[in-house]
Design a binder for these strands. Structure first.
Length: 433
RNA sequence: GUCCCCAUCGUCUAGCCUGGUCAGGACACCAGAUUUUCAUUCUGGCAGCACCGGUUCAAAUCCGGUUGGGGACGCCA
């Protein structure tokens, strides 16, 4: 059976690169009906922190990358590593070295050539004569990454190690360790690195690198996974939008790219927008409401639903609604002077708006969109102006913006009271004659 | 510095293995259509095989080199 693993060290929050590594390992295991295991590499006593471990586990769960079996913690297997290290020492393949009174165990580097088939890069070869002896047990009694990783990949019966290209030159050393124990090394697949938008290694200065940042921004987990899958992998068709189950069906190691890929937030946003549009309506409503829990409470459920549906084709993320429809959640500030003056250069506008307000007051409510439209168009007709002469200033009066969803839908969301108030304020802001 | 990996539109990529199809798709951008505006949607457009040499009737594709980018050289992982 195929077995893959994701083996993060809890020395930082789960980042974008880690998510993709986990994703590819998950996809391959699921595709082959194998198992995807999780191992926490907490052998750095100084830097490992429980909150990071918690973050990683939470993040994987949120993403829907479920692992099989129990999580393996390296810090709980210290005795085992020590035992294996002693075995190597006993066979003369490793030795103890005392440095400033502290004893570490080092692996004697065999001088040979290591050739292995990487699933992504094909044949890779290293001359190990260029490598130094390797510390396998640190003087604090903890194993090094190199040692614990090899031992656990064997013990967990991992068949495919899928990890970042930054581990490529660790691989020959780990293969040597496998050989020292007479174990069969797993297959390796080294993924290209994810770079920042400028092509340099991804770091904080490129913006958000922690997964939680995207979660907080209300990106959909499936969209994130979809986008990340596209960074270094492509299917056989031109399809670019995938649900997780589809990725599982179509994933293959052979179609992984060799070169580093730049993270492009704009495309991520586009993918997220597509996923939002593909959500079933009740699902969309539920997720949107959960993402904007506090804001949604300020609205009548029916009105909230109308608002949220209005913005469905326009938002890049759920929380994007807050930016785009700010006028629904907050008072609008003073109107832009220049814009106001432009609208009121048309002499007829003032009387039109006054007439509109008068008619609007007569309406029992703003619940009927068709009625609002008819009423507004009638006012324009009566005043002998084109409808847009009235519509554009009304939009601006109600939103403070020159672009928005349909004006009449919007009126019904804001409600009679708010609309009349804002139109009143707008009229008061009109330049004096 | 030493070793390893990589190189197609601005970006993500297909094509390369098994040379010969106008180098295909997507994001972004531009234009048009639709719309009360914007967004969505639809249509069209711009734009690329890093460079040099070799093999061949023929090279994005095979080989070598150059340049460029990345990674690794920790008692970090």
């Amino acid at each position: 059976m195929i077995r893959t693993r994701f083996a993060p060290s809890p020395t930082g929050f789960l980042h974008i690169g880690g998510v993709r590594t986990a994703l590819f390992s998950f996809l391959y295991a699921r595709r082959q009906q194998g198992e995807f295991l999780l191992r926490i590499e907490d052998t750095d006593r100084e830097r490992s922190k429980p909150e990071f471990e918690k973050d990683i586990l939470n993040a994987l769960q949120w993403l829907g990358l479920r692992w099989d079996h129990d999580v393996l913690y390296q810090s709980r297997r210290l005795g085992h590593y020590l035992e294996l290290a002693r075995d190597l020492v006993g066979r003369g393949l490793a030795y103890e070295e005392v440095n400033e009174g502290r004893t570490a165990v080092k692996f004697r580097m065999p001088k040979t050539e290591i050739v292995f088939q990487d699933a992504v890069r094909e044949e890779v070869r290293f001359d190990t004569a260029l490598f130094d002896d390797l510390v396998i047990i640190k003087s604090d009694g903890f194993p090094t990454f190199m040692f614990a990783c090899a031992v656990d990949d064997h013990d967990m019966e991992i068949t495919h190690v899928i990890r970042g290209e930054d581990h490529l030159s660790n691989t020959p050393r780990q293969i040597l360790l496998f050989q020292a124990f007479g174990w069969k090394p797993p297959q390796y697949a080294h993924l290209p690195l994810i770079l920042g938008s400028d092509g340099t290694p991804l770091s904080k200065r490129h913006g958000a690198v922690a997964l939680t940042a995207y979660r907080e921004e209300s990106f959909l987990p499936e969209a994130l996974l979809n986008y990340l899958a596209l960074l270094g992998w492509s299917g056989e068709s031109n399809q670019e939008l995938y649900r997780l189950e589809e990725l599982v069906k179509k994933f293959s190691l052979k179609r992984i790219t060799k070169s580093g890929a730049r993270f492009d937030r704009e495309k991520l946003e586009w993918v997220n927008m597509q996923h939002i549009k593909n959500l079933a309506e009740p699902d969309y409503l539920a997720k949107m409401t959960a993402a904007l829990e506090n804001e949604s409470k300020q609205f009548d459920p029916e009105v909230w639903k109308r608002l949220v549906l209005l913005y469905r084709p326009r938002i890049k993320t759920f929380k994007d609604l807050l930016n785009q429809a700010n006028y629904c959640f907050n008072e609008i500030g003073p109107y832009d002077r220049e814009q106001i003056n432009r609208f009121f250069t048309d002499e007829r506008l003032k009387s039109c708006l006054e007439k509109w307000a008068e008619n609007a007051k007569g309406l029992p409510s703003f619940g009927d969109i068709a009625q609002l439209e008819a009423m507004t168009r009638n006012v324009a007709d009566d005043q002998k102006v084109e409808a847009k002469i009235l519509i554009h200033p009304l939009r601006f009066a109600l939103t403070g913006l020159t672009a928005s969803p349909g004006l009449f839908d919007l009126m019904s969301v804001l409600g009679k009271e708010v609309c009349l108030k804002r139109v009143g304020q707008f009229l008061e802001s009109a330049p004096a004659k």
